[in-house]
Design a protein around this nucleic acid. Structure first.
Length: 434
RNA sequence: UCCUCGGUAGCUCAAUGGUAGAGCAUUCGGCUGUUAACCGAAGGGUUCCAGGUUCGAGUCCUGGCCGAGGAGCCA
């Protein structure tokens, strides 16, 4: 019995008998020769079945294969300049594991489909080369993020999904029943990160985040994944440097390990290769002036809209760090700048090419009195934030952190039109299935 | 929530108010090197739903359902 091998490793088996197990991707035939394209999740290889070289049963099996039928194919690996992967499989044995019946064929053909049809068949669409490439890049990005923090002495500390109240009081939350009580799905692990940062010094959490906003744009999901570091004794500049280092590291890693996926996605890698520190830094004041110069309606004191972000980032080849927004547009826990109390020690990182905000964060209020004032001013429920104020009573220190939305980073690095393709099963305003 | 656009064969789309069409997919036939293979033939329709106007509606009108893009809000 020849060894079962993965298509990605096929080069090591040139000239040898192997078994490939996978699914039929496409089939071309020419009378007495059949070319089944087989994918196994690690790659695609073209098989060759010649009528005169195999039993009539194997040939008939091959000729009648339907798209996505699962199979095991035995044969000899042969280097061939005509093959896209450099190798072909001369099939001598074929076992059909499950035959997709012709009365109910695989719905997704190699031809054009509309987005609604593809989203309805997301569970099958994931098998296509393009979606597989995105899943690969997403995996690499998440692994790179974790390596970056792990290698710098951070401890991953998970934060809860059920929360008693809004973290920030700004966004709409999903309400769920919690026995006789109500709970909300988390919109950020940050407040809990502030607690755990005092325990381990440098922490991060990585998990799903939920926003019940009725946003219907290419940058929004109702359920998305966020990685959030928090560092004790760190100031705004430290958070900016940490975010800059993280994004540069992630891009470098993807370029090093996922070239083939970026090629499938037709990503212009030259643009990604320019993403090296230092990233440009701009104060909110400067950003407003630039925007006004480009014809935006923005006034000092307002937050940027999607068009503003695109307008601002289009002048730069690297991600852009915008810092010191007016406190009024930022969350209650943002520390005011001692030199200018009307602005917060916060930072947003805007990805190039209109991909929007990928990082948001800054320095947190360390002073108990000021924090309590802010909670009262925002009319947040003090009973559920008592523990958070407690952190300012027992060894309060300056601390900073940020959150990075994984899907927007994936969309940017892959060069996708819409974040819905960056997550296996997107949850959106009008999409809960599959 | 608001604005714009759309819903016709399994899929992608055509069709001036006048017989419902093409490409792909499927089935059958042909082809020993195909690369979204190609060539020939066949089958395939509650035109999203409910009303209305009209001699006649896929097309026009009203309401609804579903979806897409954008705005606001946000990562």
């Amino acid at each position: 019995m020849p060894p079962v091998v993965e298509i990605r490793n096929i080069a090591q088996f040139a000239g040898q008998e192997v078994v490939i197990q996978g699914w039929l991707y496409n089939l071309r035939s020419s009378g007495k020769i059949v070319f089944p394209l087989i994918r196994d999740g690690s790659g695609i290889i073209q098989g060759v079945v010649v009528k005169s070289a195999v039993s009539p049963q194997v040939f008939e099996h091959a000729r009648g294969l339907t798209q996505e039928s699962s199979l095991r194919a035995a044969g000899k690996v042969r280097a061939d300049a005509r093959a896209p992967g450099g190798f072909e499989l001369d099939i001598t044995g074929l076992e059909i594991v499950q035959y997709v019946p012709i009365e109910r064929p695989y719905p997704i053909t190699p031809k054009d489909h509309g987005i609604e049809f593809l989203m309805d068949h997301r569970h099958l669409w994931l098998r296509s080369s393009r979606q597989r490439a995105i899943l690969g890049v997403r995996h690499e990005i998440i692994k790179a993020c974790r390596d970056y923090f792990d290698d710098r002495g951070f401890t991953l500390v998970d934060t809860p999904i059920f929360t008693p109240a809004a973290c920030e009081g700004t966004t709409t939350l999903f309400e769920v029943g919690y026995f006789e009580d109500k709970a909300y799905l988390t919109q950020s692990g940050q407040l809990y990160n502030e607690a755990t940062a005092a325990a381990v010094g440098k922490t991060y959490c990585f998990g799903p985040t939920f926003r019940a906003e009725k946003s219907k744009t290419r940058r929004h999901l109702t359920e998305f994944w966020m990685i959030e570091p928090e560092v004790a004794f760190a100031h705004l500049d430290d958070a900016m440097a940490l975010g800059e280092g993280l994004v540069a590291f992630v891009v470098e890693r993807v370029l090093a390990k996922r070239r083939s996926e970026l090629k499938v996605l037709e990503r212009d890698v030259a643009k990604l290769e320019k993403v090296v520190p230092p990233f440009p830094r701009l104060s909110y004041d400067e950003a407003v002036k630039i925007l006004q110069g480009k014809g935006s309606e923005i006034q000092w004191g307002g937050d940027f809209g999607g068009t503003d972000e695109t307008l601002l980032s289009e002048g730069f080849e690297k991600p852009l760090l915008v810092h010191r927004y007016p406190s009024q547009v930022k969350a209650f826990y943002m520390a005011p700048d001692p030199a200018r109390p009307e602005v917060a020690l916060c930072v947003d990182m805007l990805a190039p090419q209109g991909y929007g905000e990928i990082i948001g964060g800054g320095e947190r209020i360390a002073d108990e009195k000021l924090l309590v004032e802010r909670i009262e001013k925002e009319k947040l429920p003090p009973e559920t934030l008592g523990w958070y104020v407690d952190l300012r009573r027992y060894g309060s220190v300056p601390h900073s952190g940020f959150g990075m939305g994984i899907e927007r980073v994936v969309a940017w690095i892959c060069g996708l039109e819409h974040v819905r393709e960056t997550i296996p099963f997107p949850r959106m305003l009008y999409r809960l299935t599959p």
